[in-house]
Design a protein around this nucleic acid. Structure first.
Lengths: 248, 248
DNA sequence: CGCCCCATTGACTTAAGTCAATATGTGTGG
DNA sequence: CCACACATATTGACTTAAGTCAATGGGGCG
């Protein structure tokens, strides 16, 4: 397992940027005191592996800042990303001893880790945590299913457009900016990571990015900074159901 | 929405074939009494639609017997299966008013429905239910992620072999038969449903089934009855990690 | 400056899709 | 009981989207 920085990061739950969205979101102050006792922070640099599939895992964690990926691989090296972990997302499964997926830091990340045993015990007596985790897991399942539609049925161009709109939407929600017609954001993934996300090769990703640029759907400043002049156009290219209506 | 049979089916929880695996698995007898009050049964014939994506959904349910599918579609009709519902699987999401997916009965099915409002209220005060549902949802998420690897990175032949081994494994677990070298089972899906599951066309499914037959990996009795002379061989064709080791 | 990583582009191959004809099988009514 | 119709499945011929292999380009950092 990769070496991580273990310099003492300290952060009171009350000052935590993800407190309102993380697994602890519903906890009252008493419960937070209890969580403080079993938590510790770890940070990883961009590119580092947080944990390998199959490794013993004695903690569960929340991503505090940065981006990490969950990937699965076939023996011959083909790899598929199966999760994109953003701030407030949860890593690990209570009741499971070993990691099921590779977790890799895509940017520098900070994770709030809970020792697994005490966390599990606490979950058994704290419905707030189990309820919140259930909600988050159901959301992830919905995301996974939308992703399955993308992987199984969309063309390369649609896949790229879908990924770009997902990143744009998330970026808007983080920056509290309203979803405008024209949007600009950073793409936190390499072409290879995009390919692993979308079930494509990196060459195809590159070609389709160029094609979308040529067709005026996107503009590129450098490799990673994207401007979408017309979000509706992008959404159309993504091929999703027109009514971007959200299910409640 | 399709017409369903509402003839009065009645089944005490104590006699329920899925009681030990369903969302109510952890409930004590007192809790079961409460559940009895808010439950009712509905049955659907093979081919019927249980609910359309977007429809109001005033119940959640467990599949008691039979098989149903969850599908998602693009506007132009491309469809992708995103869930295969077997006995004891749960349908619907507490806290959500409308169905997110199309639910279709593949065989005749019986569902144990709970009125949504009272079920949600009960969930809030009954940790056993939320805990069990969390466990089931985490299992589904794992299955969805394995499926994503299949959709994104496997070849048509590997996809078919994977589906066959999943069905074989499930069949074995239902029949309590040990996973033997030689196995025989029914394939409860049409070629089209298989294609929707695997992100392929039905022609490709047909061709690959023929190829696996020609190569001696499977034998067919009629369209739907499959014999696998050597499960290890099939697993190999599925391309999964050799150690079929299960994560706990 | 030059190296390294990441990305782009081109030429060619191939797996899977499309369109279409044919086969198999099942249930219904004459 | 047969024959017809309709569903489902198979197979063939051809097309195409995406993959592969390989060369080239460009930006950032020591």
């Amino acid at each position: 397992m990769a070496q991580d920085d273990v310099y003492p990061v300290s952060l009171a739950c009350g000052d935590c940027p993800i407190q309102h969205r993380a697994v602890c979101a519903r906890c009252d102050s008493e419960e937070l005191v209890e969580l403080e006792k079993i938590k510790y922070y770890r940070s990883f640099e961009a590119g580092q592996t947080v944990i390998w599939a199959g490794d013993q895992m004695d903690f569960v964690a929340s991503v505090v800042s940065g981006i990490a990926t969950l990937t699965q691989t076939l023996e011959d090296g083909r790899t598929q990303m199966v999760g994109l972990l953003l701030p407030s997302d949860f890593v690990g499964r209570p009741g499971r001893a070993r990691a099921a997926y590779n977790v890799t830091a895509t940017t520098d990340i900070l994770m709030c880790c809970f020792r697994k045993k005490p966390f599990e015990e606490m979950m058994d007596r704290t419905p707030h945590i189990a309820q919140r985790l259930l909600q988050m897991t159901l959301d992830e399942l919905d995301a996974a299913r939308e992703w399955m539609l993308l992987l199984g049925r969309k063309t390369a161009r649609e896949k790229i457009a879908s990924l770009l709109s997902i990143v744009a939407r998330r970026d808007a929600s983080v920056n509290m900016s309203t979803a405008a017609a024209r949007m600009t954001f950073d793409l936190p993934l390499t072409r290879e990571a995009m390919a692993d996300y979308l079930g494509l090769t990196l060459e195809t990703v590159s070609r389709q990015m160029s094609a979308l640029k040529r067709d005026g759907v996107i503009e590129l400043q450098g490799k990673r900074h994207v401007t979408v002049p017309d979000m509706d156009r992008l959404l159309l290219e993504a091929g999703d159901d027109s009514d971007g209506g959200f299910l409640v």
